[in-house]
Design a binder for these strands. Structure first.
Lengths: 353, 353
DNA sequence: CTGAAAGCGCTTACAG
DNA sequence: CTGAAAGCGCTTACAG
């Protein structure tokens, strides 16, 4: 196809211009879809571009135009299902808009000042490369990053349900996980449980919105409010929490901050010889891919992470383009998925009650 | 801190130079760690940089130097554990070397020419933005991307075990999953099973190296070679395969191409009332985070995905810098993790045999 | 509709 | 050790 003699340097707009017999400014107009180019000229330039295999230099474009068509997402983890799915959604939307997406993972933050520094460094580095930032702020590291972003750089945060309605200046997206936690808890209460215990994920806020939703439901029902057990993200910490809960014969219902935690709880209950859902009911959060296939399969709350990612990109895009100022808003409503792991208390056979 | 009057445009090296009383070339030398700068000058410039909050423009640097300090990883999915963990490893190593990492997901390829086009577009877009490419080629889309990368762009592939030793011109990294499949199969055979059935992941090659390793072990033992069942990546397809296998009373041992598949198989066996490992043994692949917590917990093969990602970056880095030509090589040896899902055939209590 | 000029913020030889 | 010049490949007004 391209029969250029030497394989040296990739063709520039000047090479295209020469080959097409126009000035390089005209080539610039063509690749930028500028209206004032005669159709025949445009055709010729386009043909030459294809023939030479020209591709605009992203660096030169960014330098000259001041705009980057790139964003980077700041995240504490890419391996957790929710985070990975959000990333997938962002990437999908970004690709459709021909934005490049970078990923920068926040180092594990241990709450010390050193962690703050690391976050700040990550934010700065990311801000350099990108035209905009999306920070996933489900955890302390992410929240710190959120506040460390300089005002000049376009940013949107994927956050937990805000405790109070954010002002119009807060470019945030979220799913209403507080309501979701409330629904999940109520589901358990409606099944007849006296109260519901909670194993929490690390939270971005002091209390955490999932925790708050769980408490909302308990209070509304006048149920006792046991202290939540602080978990991490992984099954191992769910397992540890589950062992403690398994020892207490009064525990008949457990809500978990995510499905991995729930898996660990399920395992601990199994090891302790407590039947699920016969003796103890367990409900998870997220509807991770494996949750439909565990034994028992997991009743959980489905969150549209990919949709959240797409919404985050859309918001960022409009912030960058400064079209309409988009108000922050919940993106979708979580949905309770009822499976096998939760049932009425005290009966081995829920169907008989 | 920074008491610049106007918040307009970020400071450039010229601003720094003026403030520090040097030429902007000297500033350039300082930020590039060029040796020939008088220490006192360096100090002064560094102080000014900090004071003004100067950050080098990535675009200008890339344009002027021709080098990008950025890579993008091409992957079919960011949500599958293995892929996500590789990405995590790449990012970790890249961050340490202050490389930015981009992610571009290959659209689902259906084997048609349209898919080829999509892959080609993705490759070109990614190649534009980045100084180098890492393609995860565990699936047909990835393999196609691997071959679609223009020769001029630095690239390394994360691949299945190559069928034959690759030449020195092939910048590939892999874990020896063929040997791993062989070991896992042998483990089952050694337990006393007459043969081992296999549920495969979609493969990059016609046969697939995990499939080949499984077959190796069967042949070496003189065991029958049942036809492998083609699975996808997800538990649902494992479940479908598991239902078929559950109907055959001769099936006593099943190897799965990944842990998600194995989870689906476990579930299908449970639904069919076949005890694991009492009647049927199941072995997975990958050691995903949840595999230690299912019931029964999963015997599987642990692969060091993060290490693979770090190695991929190291290779790419050396390709870009053109230091020593690094030979392609397996990065680590997989390790069989024995848990509960596999045992001797025909006995409900393995300990009694 | 199209061309000539200046400039984006750096780096890279080249002088001194 | 440090400065002046040219250039990386584009875009953005400004002319015509």
């Amino acid at each position: 196809m391209s029969v250029t003699g030497h394989t040296s340097r990739p063709p520039s707009i000047r090479d295209v211009a020469t080959a097409a017999g126009v000035s390089y400014q005209t080539v610039s107009r063509v690749i930028n879809d500028h209206p004032s180019v005669r159709p025949s000229t445009r055709e010729r330039v386009l043909a030459t571009i294809a023939e030479l295999g020209f591709r605009r230099s992203a660096a030169a474009h960014a330098l000259a135009s001041g705009r980057t068509r790139a964003l980077t997402v700041l995240s504490a983890n890419t391996t957790l299902y929710g985070y990975a799915a959000i990333l997938q959604g962002i990437e999908e939307a970004a690709r459709a808009a021909s934005f490049a997406v970078g990923i920068s993972v926040l180092e594990v933050s241990d709450g010390t000042d050193g962690a703050d520094d690391a976050v700040r460094r990550a934010v700065e580095t990311a801000a350099d490369a990108a035209g905009g930032l999306i920070v996933i702020a489900y955890d302390p590291g992410g929240v710190r990053a959120l506040t460390a972003v300089p005002a000049r750089v376009p940013m949107v945060g994927v956050v937990e349900t805000p405790a109070e309605p954010p002002g119009p200046g807060s470019p945030w997206v979220w799913t209403d996980d507080r309501a979701a936690a409330r629904d999940a808890t109520r589901h358990l209460l409606d099944l007849g449980h006296r109260t519901v215990h909670y194993v929490s994920i690390p939270s971005s806020t002091h209390t955490g919105q999932r925790t708050a939703g769980w408490r909302d439901a308990l209070r509304a029902a006048g149920a006792p409010e046991p202290a939540p057990l602080a978990g991490s993200w992984d099954p191992a910490s769910g397992h540890a929490a589950g062992r403690r809960l398994a020892r207490d014969p009064d525990v008949t219902a457990i809500l978990c901050g995510n499905d991995d935690l729930a898996l660990g709880v399920l395992r601990a209950l199994h090891e302790a010889g407590r039947a699920v859902p016969g003796e103890v009911s367990v409900v998870g959060f997220d509807d991770a891919p494996h949750s439909a296939y565990t034994t028992p399969s997991l009743t959980t709350v489905r969150l549209d992470f990919a949709g959240l990612g797409r919404a985050a990109f859309a918001l960022l895009h409009s912030v960058i383009e400064q079209d309409a100022p988009v108000d922050p808003h919940p993106v979708s409503t979580p949905e309770l998925v009822v499976r096998e792991s939760a049932g009425p208390p005290g009966g081995r056979d829920p169907a008989l009650r």
